[in-house]
Amino acid sequence: MEEVSILDEDQCWNLLSESVMGRLALAVNGEPEIFPINAYAHDGKILFRTGEGTKLSEIAVNGRCAFETDGFTSKIGWSVVAKGTARILTGTQEIMAADQLPLKPWIPTLKLNYVEIDVEQITGRRFRFGDEPDRYPV
């Protein structure tokens, strides 16, 4: 295994679908912001719930976003980045369908808004951990 391997789209979606925690990157008032979120990935989309606040307000103005998730063991690590457009679900049918998904808030707060990211690009890498090579080989 090479130190860094590029993952194909199917590998990226597989890792993304098994992950429950990630980071949402948005531009808030023209400045980059990153928010930890729990999410659910399926059918080329990523879904998360949120309460009223910065994330929801910014998505209403500018839905362009990125979502990153990763994982690691003592020997390997991986990272998947999905880029796309987020939209707040508003239709009764789509909200009812989202309610059936295994997506619940992790903390005891009301998160009444569903947001869906339509993924346009997904990339990923796998890393093999090891000692740093000798900087000054003999």
Rank of each mutant, 00 (worst) to 15 (best):
W13E: 08
N14K: 15
L15P: 09
S17T: 15
E18M: 14
E18V: 06
E18T: 13
M21W: 10
M21G: 11
G22N: 03
L24H: 10
L24V: 15
V28R: 00
V28N: 06
V28T: 08
N29I: 05
G30P: 06
E31V: 11
E31L: 14
P32G: 06
P32N: 03
P32Q: 09
P32A: 13
P32C: 12
P32M: 11
E33F: 00
E33Y: 13
E33G: 07
P36E: 00
P36G: 01
A39E: 01
Y40E: 02
A41G: 02
H42F: 14
H42N: 11
D43S: 14
G44C: 01
G44I: 03
K45D: 08
I46R: 03
L47I: 13
L47T: 14
F48G: 00
F48K: 00
R49C: 04
R49M: 03
G51T: 00
G53P: 09
G53K: 11
G53H: 06
G53Q: 03
T54V: 10
K55H: 12
L56Y: 10
S57F: 05
E58R: 07
E58L: 01
I59Q: 14
N62H: 13
N62V: 00
G63W: 06
G63F: 09
G63N: 02
G63S: 08
G63D: 10
R64F: 05
R64V: 12
R64K: 15
R64N: 13
C65Y: 07
C65A: 15
A66E: 08
F67D: 06
E68C: 14
D70Q: 12
D70E: 10
G71S: 05
G71D: 08
G71F: 08
G71P: 05
T73M: 00
S74L: 12
S74D: 11
K75E: 12
I76C: 07
G77Q: 07
W78I: 07
W78G: 11
S79K: 02
V80E: 06
V80I: 13
V81N: 05
V81K: 11
A82D: 01
A82S: 04
G84E: 03
G84K: 05
A86R: 02
A86F: 01
I88W: 03
L89C: 05
L89G: 01
L89H: 02
L89T: 02
T90M: 12
T90H: 06
G91P: 09
Q93A: 15
E94L: 05
E94S: 10
